[in-house]
Design a protein around this nucleic acid. Structure first.
Length: 790
RNA sequence: GCGGACGUGGCGAAAUGGUAGACGCAAGGGACUUAAAAUCCCUCGGGGAGAAAUCCCUGUGCCGGUUCGAGUCCGGCCGUCCGCACCA
């Protein structure tokens, strides 16, 4: 709709379509059906392309590509190497979700209740050498630039902000009594005198080091790892700690020693992997302290509480207050105490103020065969070496064996065996492929010139980018949209674009939902097998009742999918298009119903009937002579009001309101008197057709032809409203007494307040309510309302 | 637990602080028809008065506040949904 609307307004519109085509579904099909993932994918693309073409979506198919096209992923490999050379790609050890049955890494989303989603095996945490994109090189910018994305939904910006998770605090060290020191991160250095223990993550290097000579500690660490990191595990997990026997000296009092624990609730991936525990002012520390009998000393006292008697009980106090029991900090506010601690630790060289982020680098390695091969080679002598420019692309093998466990690229007899590009000796190709989110992180730049022999054609990208209007589901709020923002910055650094933000405008649309049906045995039943009688649902042609479930996102697993072909066959594509746009605002989920589709189809027919007597109208181009006749003038006003309203609604993506405006215009046309001059009727009909053009493209063309035009609606300019006709000469003003509606007055637009006031006071119900007394006050908002205070 | 959004007829929904329910779906009544479909007309938040035209009361989750005026703004509850989740 937008593509057609903007084109009609004279814009040069690029509305492309492509296929995010690598990934697990093709692999699963390969495993389950024994098909080649490539053949399966391209067959699906062909089917979906045909469906989309039937819908008349005004897509520029000359720019179409799929991410699994070698021409596309070849350029992606080139980018990967350029990112690597620019320091934005690196390889490092990382904790990953490892499925021991499928012997592959799983994404977090693929771990359900601690088990691999496909194999059902308990997922292990494993340290593996993996490829990363250095997204954290842009953390600050990714965060601060969110403020400038003023055409993005607030919700998405907030989600990204939370995901990046900026916290200001301090890093500082505790000296250990055995030897060395441990660095912690804290956002509450002001509570340092309330410290009662130090805790390390089970994955902390010191913990692992000490475990070598402490079997009990080693066993404890092992147990922590086994409990896993799934949400369910975390929610139910109790705080567990192991006293290492090592003691830490308080930074401000070397004689004060704190126990050093290894604790299951300390994450290695955040901060330094070590904390100091202040139970009075942190709920987790409090629970831990209660369990292990550690002291709870309040050091921030809320206003009105006595420091001597203040007791936090079972809820840590995290609010503002005055410092107490804190030596040189006593009497300061939380903010003042933070500054003072920072000043002292920094000047003593014991620590520094830092900003800590939640965002971590993006792990892109996947032990998966249906993805873009990472174009790197591992040589025993030379280390990691990028594939030579002249050897690109690294193509996937034509045939892959999915029978065994693990990555078929790794078990392929020849594919990974290559010579080192540097020394020429025997070497191995990287058999990991890129996370499919990499594929979708730069495709929009490729659309500017999809045949370019560079990844991105700078000139074309400068012309088209950023994307003026991006549309996608809310599920992309963090992952895809954050990755694409990162990639665009990388492309900028490499000189492929001059922008940092890929999407100037973002709209998150809802999904199409449908009722679900189940039989007595619990099996899902397709809508096509259902018929409804007297409010109940039955198996078609039988008296077997079925259970009607909630309306849910259409999905194959619940069989509540409506195939577009069947609807197009029955009603035509425009009925689907009109349905999608009607009633429900586009950001919300929409429920597909047969009744709604019927209603939309009736409107399609109605528009066609309105055009029906077009041959009795004067020919196209007949000028409208200013109608003196009231009914003709009213119709013209309706026409121009509709133009103004629909234009405004489409400008703001309010398709459901635009639909309502068009219904209003159709109603006006339907009840138009026969006496109205033909030229006025023609203007109204032609406007109706032009306004529905972006929405019901096919119907509009048929109507345009029936109205006697040679050309196409798609080549017509968007109509412009006549301001004189949009604005009426008179207005209806509401008249209230004490805020309650008592009547309305019809009055000249822009009439004097006095005139409105006397007209209002003259109304019968107003006089009745006032009971002859003079009003205390009269508020007149010109052209809107008169409110009389009695 | 933290963060956010939302709550309006039977349903989907409208409503720059200014006539609540536009527009559509469903439902009911009527016209046309031998009949049905299609189409057209009327009714359609709740309650009440009237022969009728009309009129009155009440109503946007609940309680309070600001305002001449609140679905809309503010505070507190209740409920639903979403995101993050042991992030120090």
């Amino acid at each position: 709709v937008l593509a057609r609307f903007r084109r009609a307004q004279g814009f040069n519109v690029l509305h492309p379509m492509g296929w995010d085509a690598f990934g697990l579904p093709a692999e699963n099909a390969a495993r389950e059906k024994g098909v080649n993932p490539r053949d399966w994918t391209y067959a699906n693309i062909a089917a979906m392309r045909a469906q989309l073409k039937q819908m008349g979506l005004a897509i520029d198919w000359t720019r179409e590509f799929a991410t699994c096209d070698p021409e596309y992923y070849a350029e992606q490999q080139r980018l990967f190497i350029e990112f690597y050379k620019a320091g934005l790609v690196y390889r490092a050890e990382a904790d990953v979700n490892w499925d021991p049955v499928d012997s592959t890494v799983l994404a977090n989303e693929q771990v359900i209740d601690g088990r691999g989603w496909r194999s059902g095996a308990l997922v292990e945490r494993k340290k593996l050498s993996q490829w990363f994109f250095r997204i954290t090189a842009y953390t600050d910018d990714l965060l601060s630039a969110l403020d400038k994305l003023d055409r993005w939904p607030e919700k998405v910006r907030l989600m990204q902000k939370n995901w990046i998770g900026r916290s200001e605090g301090m890093r500082f060290s505790f000296d250990l009594t055995n030897s060395g020191k441990v660095e912690v991160f804290s956002t509450r250095p002001d509570t340092l005198f309330g410290a009662s223990f130090v805790a390390l993550s089970p994955d902390h290097p010191l913990a692992e080091h000490w475990a070598k000579s402490d079997n009990k500690l080693a066993a404890f660490i092992e147990e922590c790892r086994r409990l896993g990191t799934s949400e369910a595990a975390i929610e139910t997990a109790e705080k567990m700690g192991f006293d290492t026997g090592v003691r830490a000296r308080h930074p401000f009092d070397p004689s004060w020693e704190l126990s050093v624990y290894v604790a299951n609730f300390v994450l290695m991936a955040y901060g330094t992997g070590a904390i100091f525990g202040c139970p009075a002012h942190d709920q987790r520390d409090l629970e831990f302290a209660h369990k292990y009998g550690l002291p709870v000393l309040p050091v921030v006292i809320p206003d009105g509480e006595d420091p001597k008697t203040f007791d936090v009980g079972h809820e840590a106090y995290v609010g503002q207050g005055q410092l107490a029991n804190s030596c040189f900090l006593d009497g300061l506010s939380v903010e003042e105490a933070k500054a003072e601690v920072a000043r002292r630790l920094e000047s003593a060289g014991q620590g520094e103020r830092t900003v800590q982020y939640r965002l971590r680098d993006w792990l892109v390695s996947r032990q998966r065969p249906w993805g873009c091969p990472i174009p790197m080679i591992r040589c025993e002598h030379c280390g990691l070496v990028p594939v030579k420019e002249s050897d690109l692309p690294v193509l996937l093998p034509n045939e892959l064996q999915f029978t065994g466990a693990g990555n078929p690229l790794d078990s392929h007899p020849t594919w990974k065996h290559v010579n080192c590009p540097k020394c020429g000796g025997t070497a191995q190709r990287e058999t990991d492929t890129c996370d499919t989110f990499v594929d979708s992180s730069w495709y929009f730049a490729r659309f500017a010139d999809p045949k370019s022999d560079a990844p991105v054609n700078r000139k074309a990208a400068d012309y088209w980018l950023p994307v003026d209007q991006y549309i996608g589901g809310i599920e992309h709020a963090i992952l895809h949209l954050l990755y694409a923002r990162f990639f665009t910055r990388g492309l900028h650094r490499l000189g492929y674009t001059n922008i940092d933000e890929p999407f100037a405008g973002l709209f998150t649309q809802g999904m199409v939902c449908h009722e679900t049906y189940r039989g007595d045995n619990g099996d899902w039943i397709e809508p096509a097998e259902i018929e409804k009688r007297d409010g109940k649902a039955y198996l078609k042609g039988s008296d077997t009742q079925v259970i009607v479930g909630h309306s849910e996102k259409m999905s194959k697993s619940k069989k509540n999918v409506i195939a577009p072909e069947a609807i197009i066959e029955r009603y035509g594509a425009d009925t689907i298009r009109w349905f999608m746009l009607s009633d429900t605002p586009p950001e919300r989920d929409i429920e597909w119903t047969d009744e709604g589709a019927e209603g939309c189809h009736r409107f399609v027919q109605r528009v066609w009937r309105l055009i029906g007597d077009a041959d009795r109208l004067p020919p196209p181009g007949t000028p409208v002579v200013d109608p003196a006749d009231g009914a003709a003038l009213e119709l013209r006003r309706a026409v121009h009001r509709a133009i103004a309203a629909v234009t405004d609604d489409l400008d703001n993506l309010r398709f459901n309101r635009a639909v309502a405006q068009i219904y209003t215009l159709a109603n006006a046309l339907g009840s138009a008197e026969a006496s109205i001059p033909g030229a006025v009727k023609r203007e109204a009909l032609e406007t109706l057709v032009l306004l529905i053009g972006p929405m019901m493209a096919h119907l509009a063309e048929s109507c345009w032809r029936a109205l006697g035009h040679e050309g196409l609606v798609v080549d017509q300019l968007w109509p412009k409203p006549d301001p004189e006709l949009v604005r009426s000469d008179t207005v209806t003003m509401a008249v209230q007494v004490n805020g309650k509606l008592r009547g309305t007055i019809e009055i000249a637009r822009g009439a004097d307040k006095q005139i409105a006031e006397s007209a209002a006071l003259a109304l019968d119900p107003v006089a009745r309510t006032l009971e002859g007394k003079p009003p205390k006050r009269v508020i007149v908002v010109p052209d809107r309302i008169v409110n009389i205070v009695a």
